[in-house]
């Protein structure tokens, strides 16, 4: 963030009509501005310089208590537990635990649609739909999210086995894996998600441009 401030300050300096013939002089002033702003803007770090190296508050976390909380799964598969899931088994879990909110085939709702409609009458519906097949850039997110937050009325109640099975089923329903493919810590990160290529990082520049 402070780099953005520096940029805007340089622009302001230019705008306010400071005329400097030599480029190197301008460059050195920019450096000075950068230095000043770094310490001023980055007050959080500047303040802490007078702090002791450690306050000694808090205690060491044990590996066991971290493991109890740390269920997150990264796109590279780090965090995925042992086990595996099958499409056919996931279908049963889905019918019992998910269909009430997401619909019999994951399309009907009343809550979020999970499955992409294959041949929608209205193409715009498909384009806008935030289904797993349309809009989820990473397959690992499916496992992570189901495990931490679903079912909505009984969050955290599913076993890893349930979650693997459900993940396999939902990926298959979206046409992303074959019916006999097994989903586990090795295969899940490799599932190709169509939405992946659409996602771009924030392209706004923190300047006048409307984006």
């Amino acid at each position: 963030m402070f780099c953005q401030k520096v940029r805007s300050m340089q622009e302001n300096m230019t705008k306010s009509g400071i005329f400097i013939g030599a480029f190197c002089l301008l460059f050195s002033i920019s450096l000075t501005a950068h230095k000043t702003l770094t310490s001023a803007q980055n007050g959080s770090q500047a303040d802490t310089l007078d702090y002791p190296r450690t306050f000694g508050f808090g205690r060491a976390a044990t590996l066991e208590e971290i493991a109890l909380l740390d269920t997150d799964v990264r796109p590279d598969g780090k965090g995925l537990p042992a086990g595996s899931g099958k499409v056919a088994d996931g279908k049963l879990v889905y019918a019992a635990k998910c269909s009430g909110c997401h619909g019999v085939t994951g399309v009907e709702g009343p809550n979020d649609a999970l499955v992409t409609v294959k041949n929608p009458a209205d193409q715009k519906t498909k384009a806008r739909s935030k289904t797993i097949g349309n809009y989820w850039p990473y397959a690992t997110t499916v496992f992570d999210y189901i495990k931490r937050a679903m079912p909505f009325n009984q969050p955290g109640s599913l076993t890893d086995q349930d979650v693997y099975n459900l993940t396999a089923f939902l990926l298959h329903e979206n046409g992303l894996i074959k019916p006999d493919e097994v989903i586990n810590a090795q295969t899940l990160p490799k599932v190709i998600m169509p939405a992946r290529d659409f996602f771009v990082p924030d392209d706004r520049q923190d300047g006048p441009e409307i984006r």
């Binding site: 990264r74 850039p137 690992t140």
Partner: peptide, 29 residues
């Protein structure tokens, strides 16, 4: 960590279509 976790909220939720088929992600400000 040394990479984003790509959680549900930052992928299929708080992201916005910006045209050209692109979806803007990590638009914090």
């Amino acid at each position: 960590s040394d990479q984003p976790f790509q959680t549900r909220q930052e992928t299929s939720k708080y992201t916005e279509a910006i045209g050209g088929g692109k979806i803007r992600q990590f638009s914090f400000t």
